[in-house]
Computed example of a mutant assay.
Amino acid sequence: MQDQQTNAQSNAQTPLQAMRLDSAAALRAHYADVVLPIWRGPGFNAALGLAYEAVAPHDHAPLPPRRYRAMACARQLFAFTDAGDLAHAATLFESLRHYFLDRRNGGWFYSVDAHGAPLERQKDLYTHAFVVFACAHYAKRSGLSDAFALLDETSRLIEARFSSGGDLLNAALAEDFGATLETPLQNPLMHLAEAWLAAREATGDAAYDRRLLQLARSVADAFVHAPSGSIAELPMGAPGNRLEPGHQFEWYFLALGSRHEAFEAAGLNEGLGRAFEFAQRHGVDPDTGGVCAAIDESGRVIDGTQRIWAQTEYLRALVTRGDAPSGQIARFGERFLHDKGWVEARSAQGDIVRAEMPSTTPYHLATSYAALTD
């Protein structure tokens, strides 16, 4: 839902009163004291055992639910596992299995309706990647055998059912995996790389090294914009392609931050160094530090919207690169955090264009803050 705000409303939304969110420790405190309690309290539907998709920015009232997505449940499972709240994480893990697991065809439904019945039944690679990611973190922290089994089963299913006939994986399939609904896209593949890195760490299984190498090579072959080293949203040559600065920063962290040999072996690392510089030069506002949504292959901004997740990826990439992020932390805190939570998106001019707070955003905050040093 897009919540258009006037400048006056925008300015009223952002004061942090006595809060000074200009250090990594301050960001983590805001997350622990302000963000997470929303999703244990008003943002959590205790009757269903699921987080609402979004809450209002002022009073945290849940937005009327139309659906609950498996990906959102998985992200919440990660967030509370990462925070060490294994009791709440256990509830989310059971909800993930209860509502979203397709016991007839295998895999995971995309969403359920407001009452918990399957709604969007397609099999979505992005969703499956987050199931693996969340289960890997939960399995490692809890030691639960069911979580280890689910991440292994889902990883095997991804390999077997999402194949496009080559090394690339399709983005979406029909409920029974019998028809391709969407051909390969960059974003699900990136999150699958993130998931398999987490699975490798949790399980120690060398099969994930092979999976990561195959994935990295397929991305290098199909998605890299050679002049800038950037990884495009669609395979190169596809009409309507775009480069997202936030994704360049995210890939930079995953590849160079993990130091996993698969990315170097696939030839991605050198290009991602250039992609970082290209995205920073063309996609980051030098005055505000705001990261825009998309640029074209020449570096021209084609979508100036500044979404919070892209800002968090920029912070993480700066740390990975060895750059001091303190100035950017302060600008991020001033523009995107407030004493009730956060601003999901601003326009290039600074107006709030999305004020409600989705349940998926704590994942971005947690992963970014974990990389920051005080």
Rank of each mutant, 00 (worst) to 15 (best):
H88L: 15
P15K: 11
A294V: 10
F332L: 15
A216G: 10
G143P: 10
N45D: 10
V219S: 08
T361H: 12
S142D: 08
Q248H: 00
Q248D: 03
G267S: 02
P227D: 07
H128T: 05
E261A: 14
A179N: 04
H137R: 03
R242S: 05
E344D: 08
S218E: 07
G84Y: 06
L27C: 02
K123L: 09
Y208P: 02
V284G: 06
A46L: 07
W309L: 15
R242H: 07
R200L: 02
A136N: 02
A206D: 07
D167L: 06
A18F: 09
E356P: 06
A149D: 14
E233H: 10
L27T: 04
A18T: 05
K123F: 15
G178V: 11
R281S: 14
T288R: 03
T14S: 12
D287H: 15
P15W: 04
A198H: 00
A29N: 15
P65K: 13
R141L: 11
E277F: 11
A202P: 12
P118K: 00
D33E: 15
T183A: 08
A232Y: 06
L173V: 02
V319Q: 12
F162L: 00
R141K: 05
Q13M: 11
W39I: 03
A330N: 15
A275W: 13
A193H: 09
L215H: 12
I329L: 04
Y126Q: 03
A47P: 02
T6Y: 09
L256A: 05
A265S: 03
S230H: 09
R321K: 12
T288W: 08
L365V: 08
E53V: 01
A83C: 01
R321H: 06
P362L: 14
A87S: 13
E120Q: 02
V34M: 11
G350D: 05
R335C: 13
